[in-house]
C-alpha cells in the first residue's frame, strides 16, 4: 500500500511544483494549497499505514490492545494542516492586495523590490 501512496505523493509534489513555476500568482497559490497536502501525506506515509483503527484507547484499558494507526504523524499533521491553511489564506490575501496595488498578476511585472532598471550603485565613499 505504501508504494501506491508514494506514487500519489510524488504526483502531488510534481503538480504543486509545476504550478509553483508558473508566472501567475493564482496558479502559484493553488500550488501552495497542494504542496501542503503533499507534505502531510508524505509524513503520514512515513509513519506507515494501517487501516481504519484510530489510536484511541478503549475505556476499560490502559494502553492500546490491538494494532492501531500510528498517532505521532497524525499529531504532527493535524497542526500542520491548520497552519498551512492560515498561510495559504495569508498568501492569498497578499497576492490579492498585490494585484490591487500593481494591477498585474504576472510575477515578472512585480518588480517593486528588485526593479529591472535599477541604477548602478554609487562609486564614491
Amino acid at each position: 500500500m505504501e508504494a501506491l501512496f508514494s506514487v500519489l505523493v510524488g504526483a502531488l509534489f510534481a503538480v504543486s511544483i509545476y504550478l509553483f513555476l508558473s508566472k501567475h500568482i493564482i496558479r502559484v497559490l493553488m500550488g501552495v494549497a497542494i504542496l501542503g497536502n503533499a507534505v502531510n501525506l508524505l509524513i503520514f506515509t512515513n509513519g506507515r499505514l494501517l487501516r481504519e483503527v484510530p489510536p484511541v484507547i478503549a475505556a476499560d484499558e490502559y494502553t492500546l490492545q490491538q494494532a492501531a494507526a500510528n498517532p505521532l504523524p497524525q499529531a504532527l499533521i493535524l497542526t500542520a494542516i491548520v497552519i498551512s491553511f492560515s498561510f495559504f489564506a495569508f498568501l492569498l490575501v497578499l497576492g490579492y492586495r498585490a494585484f490591487q496595488e500593481l494591477e498585474t498578476d504576472d510575477t515578472d511585472e512585480m518588480r517593486v523590490a528588485e526593479p529591472a532598471d535599477e541604477e548602478a550603485p554609487p562609486l564614491g565613499y
Binding site: 508504494a3 503538480v15 508524505l42 506507515r48
Partner: peptide, 29 residues
C-alpha cells in the same frame, strides 16, 4: 516538477522499504 516529484516518490519508497522503528509512537501509546 517531475524530477522533484520522482525524487520524493523514490525517497518515500526507500524509507518505507526499511523496517519501521516505533519506539517513539510506543512511548506515547
Amino acid at each position: 516538477a517531475i524530477a522533484c516529484g520522482a525524487g520524493f516518490m523514490l525517497y518515500l519508497l526507500a524509507v518505507t522499504e526499511v523496517p519501521f522503528r516505533s519506539y517513539l509512537s510506543d512511548f506515547f501509546i
